[in-house]
Amino acid sequence: MNLFLVNLLLALAWVALTGSFQPVDLLFGFLLGYGVLWLAFRSTRSKRYFSRFPKVVEFVLFFVKELLLANLRMAVTILSPKMQLRPGVVAVPLDLKTRAGIVFLANMITLTPGTLSLDISVDRKMLYVHTVWLEDAEKFRSAIKQEYERRVKEIVEA
C-alpha cells in the first residue's frame, strides 16, 4: 500500500511540475509514476503492488459490466407486466478470512442489482444473500464464489 501512496505523490509532483491541474494530467502522471515505480521496484520484495494493480483494474471493469447488465435486467423486470420473480435467500459459504474482505464482498453483492447481502453468521462462515432471480441454489453459490469471491480474494487477501 505504501507504493500506492508514493505513486499518488509522484502523480501530484507531475501535476505540480507541469503546472496544469487537469484530471487528465493527474491520470497521466499516475501512469508515469506507475511505470517509474515498476522499473525501480520490480525485482525487490515489494512487487505485490504490481501484481495486484492490474487485478484491481480488472475487478473494476468486471464490476461495472455486472452493474450495467443487472440494472438492465432489473429495468426489464420492473417494466414487464407480469414480473418474472423467483426470489430466495441463499446461504453462501465463505472462504474469505479477513473482515475487510468480507465487508468488501458483501458490499459488492449488494451493489449488484438483484442480489442483497442480508447478514453474516457470527462465526463469519456463511453469508446470507437475498436474490431476485434464483434458478438453482447451487449454481448461484458457485457463481458468487467464482465471480466475486475469487476476485475479492485476489485483491484483498493475496
Partner: peptide
C-alpha cells in the same frame, strides 16, 4: 412465491445472533 429461505431458523430470537 419465495423459492428458498436459508435464513429460516438461524437467528436466535433472544439476542439476534445468527448461527450458520
Amino acid at each position: 412465491d419465495t423459492v428458498q429461505d436459508d435464513l429460516k431458523k438461524h437467528y436466535r430470537i433472544s439476542d439476534h445472533a445468527l448461527y450458520s
